[in-house]
């Protein structure tokens, strides 16, 4: 049986697992990004160096702490996180998604913070000078201008999540990782190599679909005046 034969005769299973993989990543990245962007907005400060003990000062503290903490989480190997969450969230899709959400946090939070703080000071000052209140400034000036940077963070985290989601099969999470685990446990048996190969390569297919998806989202959501 050559590889094409394998693909055609197992197309239904492969397609199903690819879709599952896509969905798990989509849900996790969606939830994680929503959390990170909301957190990033909540802890954004008007001044770069707020006075001690002011509300902004605490927000800046939460922001820096949050970045350090989520960055540390990113260095924890995925297998360890799956293992640590399994006793609480059980075998299956919940654990797979929770862990992926955790990996999403840092990149999106970092890009949100960076995007919001690198908005041209002159633009913010003139917004203030024209009578924009803080919330209006944040939502109608800073967020749209930071959006390309945020969106890029979401894109990068999506690519990383695709490869991490594979390990989720260890805790019986859905997706292409199932092909890897099946293949390696049956090594030497018929089609075991094809299974592993498919599980690996189809991650790139999922990535390609996401790239197209993001190209469209970019086109639709980045304001015309700042589109490159």
């Amino acid at each position: 049986m050559n590889y094409l034969d394998y693909l055609t005769s197992n197309s239904e299973q492969i397609l199903f697992l690819t879709q599952a993989h896509f969905l798990v990543v989509l849900i996790a990245v969606g939830v994680g990004s929503a959390i990170s962007v909301a957190l990033g907005l909540a802890v954004s400060t008007g001044e770069p160096d707020p006075p001690r003990f002011s509300l902004d000062w605490f927000a800046a503290g939460v922001r820096e702490g949050g970045l350090v903490f989520t960055a540390a989480l990113l260095t924890v190997p995925s297998l360890a996180l799956y293992a640590l969450f399994l006793p609480f969230t059980g075998l299956g899709v919940t654990t797979a998604i929770v862990v992926l959400v955790i990996y999403t946090l840092y990149t999106v939070l970092r890009n949100t913070v960076a995007g919001l703080t690198t908005v041209d000071r002159a633009v913010l000052e003139s917004a203030r000078g024209l009578g924009y209140g803080r919330l209006r400034r944040l939502l109608t000036i800073q967020l749209p201008l930071a959006w390309p940077v945020i969106l890029n963070g979401i894109r990068v985290t999506t690519l990383i999540s695709i490869s991490i989601a594979v390990v989720g099969a260890v805790v019986q999470g859905p997706g292409l990782g199932i092909l890897l685990i099946n293949g390696i446990s049956r090594i030497g048996a018929a089609n075991s190599f094809y299974q592993v190969l498919t599980g690996t390569l189809f991650c790139l297919v999922v990535a390609a679909v996401f790239e197209i998806f993001f190209a469209i989202v970019q086109r639709l959501t980045i304001p015309r005046g700042i589109r490159v």
Binding site: I162, S163, V166, G177, T200, L204
Partner: peptide
């Protein structure tokens, strides 16, 4: 793009 290529798969 290769960030999406799972290290687990490469290893196996």
């Amino acid at each position: 793009f290769a960030q999406a290529l799972p290290p687990f798969g490469v290893l196996l």
